[in-house]
Nucleic acid binder design. Structure first.
Lengths: 212, 212
DNA sequence: ATATGTGAAACTGTTCACAGCT
DNA sequence: AGCTGTGAACAGTTTCACATAT
C-alpha cells in the first residue's frame, strides 16, 4: 500500500474530491501546471481551507508557497477514487430513466461502463442497444454479473419493483448500488447503497420556497 | 401562522420528511389509520428516535401510547413541504436527461409540473412535447417564467453550458434550482441550488469498492 | 510574500435516556 | 404497558488560526 488512509474520512469529503478531480481534468487539458486551493475552491463556491483539509486526509500533495501540481494531483485523485481501472455496471430497468442513463456518455470517460441491461418486461427482452448491449431478463443477472465481472448496480425501475431489483443485485454479489426509485430499498449492510431521489430533491426546494 | 418553526432544522431532516410523506401516502391509500415511529423507521432502515426527532422540529403530531394518525400527519407533512400547492417548473435542456425528466410522471402527483422547456439548439425549438409544452429558445426564459408563474428551475444541459443556464434562470427571478451537470454552477446566495451529480455518486461507489 | 498542512475550536446533526401522556 | 417528545450527551464535519515551507 502507498497512501496514509489514517483517520476515517468524512463522506462529504469524498464527494468533493470528485468535484476537484473534474476541475483538475479541465485544467490539465488546458495545460495549466499549478493551481492553488483558493482557485479550486472558487469554482465550486467553497473555501480554500475546505479544499486543503479534504486533500490532507489522503496526503500532502502541494508545495507551500506554490500550490498543487495539476497533473500529479489529478492522477492521485483518480487513484484514490478508484478511477484508474474500469468499472462494469449492471443497469436494472430499461425504461425512461434507465435508457437516459445508458445513453448519457459522460461517465464513460471516468472508466464506468454499463455492460449489461435487465428488465422484467418480456416485450423489452432482446432489444439491441448501443455498444453491443442487449436487454436481458432479470433471471440472467447472476450469470451476467459473474461472466462480465460487474461490480456496480444501478436500479432504475418503478418504486414498487425497487426492493426486488436491489435484492437480485445483492444476491449476484454486487456490493455497490445506485438507486433511483423513492420507495423502500433495504440491502445487507456490507452493500453500499446510494440513493438519488429526485422527488426528495424537488420537495426540499419546495420546502425552501414555501418557508423562506 | 400555525406551526412552531422554532430552531433551525437540519437539511437532512427535510429530506427524510419527504420519505415519511411517501410512506404515509401509501399507508393512507391502504386505509391504515395509525402508525408508530418504529414502523415508519423500519421501512427506510432508520431508527425510531430519528423519526420522532425529525417530526418534533415541526410540532407534536402523535399521541403517546398510540402512535401517529396517518391521514392528519400526511396532510401536515404535505403542508410543511409546500405540497399543498402547485409548483410550475422551467426545464432548461431538451436532451437525454431533460426529456427523461419531462416524461417521468411520478413528481406530477406531488404537484410539480414542468410548464416550459428551453434549449439552445435551434433545431429543437418548436418541438411539440406532451401536455401542450413546446421547446422554446433560451431568450424566452424571462417572459415564460413571468407569464406562467414558474418558481423552480431544472438545469439539464451539458456541463459547459450549466453556468449560463443557471444565470438565465436566476435573472428570470427563479429562487430554486435543481442542477444535473457536474461542472461549475454558481448562483446568487438567495437562490437555493441543489445538485444531482451522478458522476460524483458513481465515483463515491468506486471509492468504496476500491478502498474497502 | 505566498500558500500548504493540521491540531484545536466551533458548529451541526445524531443518538440516547427518560419524563410525560394515553 | 406502550409510545411520543425532547433536553442532554455524543459524534461527525466544518472552520479557524497559525506553524511551516518555498
Amino acid at each position: 500500500m502507498s497512501g496514509k488512509q489514517r483517520a476515517k474520512i468524512p463522506e462529504p469529503a469524498i464527494r468533493r474530491l470528485s468535484f476537484y478531480r473534474r476541475h483538475l481534468a479541465d485544467l490539465a487539458a488546458l495545460g495549466v501546471a499549478t493551481i492553488s486551493s483558493r482557485e479550486i475552491a472558487q469554482v465550486y463556491g467553497l473555501e480554500p481551507f475546505q479544499v486543503r483539509k479534504d486533500l490532507s486526509y489522503f496526503g500532502s500533495f502541494g508545495r507551500r508557497g506554490r500550490g498543487y501540481p495539476v497533473r500529479t494531483l489529478l492522477r492521485r485523485l483518480e487513484r484514490i477514487l478508484g478511477l484508474d481501472r474500469r468499472w462494469r455496471i449492471a443497469l436494472v430497468g430499461a425504461g425512461n430513466i434507465g435508457m437516459a442513463l445508458f445513453r448519457y456518455a459522460e461517465y464513460r470517460r471516468q472508466g464506468f461502463e454499463i455492460a449489461a441491461v435487465f428488465d422484467a418486461d418480456p416485450r423489452k427482452i432482446g432489444t439491441r442497444l448501443e455498444h453491443g448491449v442487449t436487454v436481458q431478463p432479470m433471471e440472467r443477472i447472476g450469470a451476467a454479473v459473474a461472466e462480465l465481472g460487474i461490480r456496480i448496480g444501478i436500479v432504475a425501475v418503478p418504486p414498487g419493483a425497487a426492493q426486488q431489483a436491489a435484492e437480485a443485485l445483492a444476491a449476484a454479489g454486487i456490493k455497490a448500488i445506485l438507486s433511483f426509485p423513492g420507495g423502500q430499498v433495504l440491502v445487507p449492510k456490507d452493500v453500499a447503497l446510494r440513493r438519488v431521489n429526485l422527488e426528495a430533491d424537488l420537495e426540499a426546494l419546495s420546502y425552501f420556497l414555501a418557508n423562506k
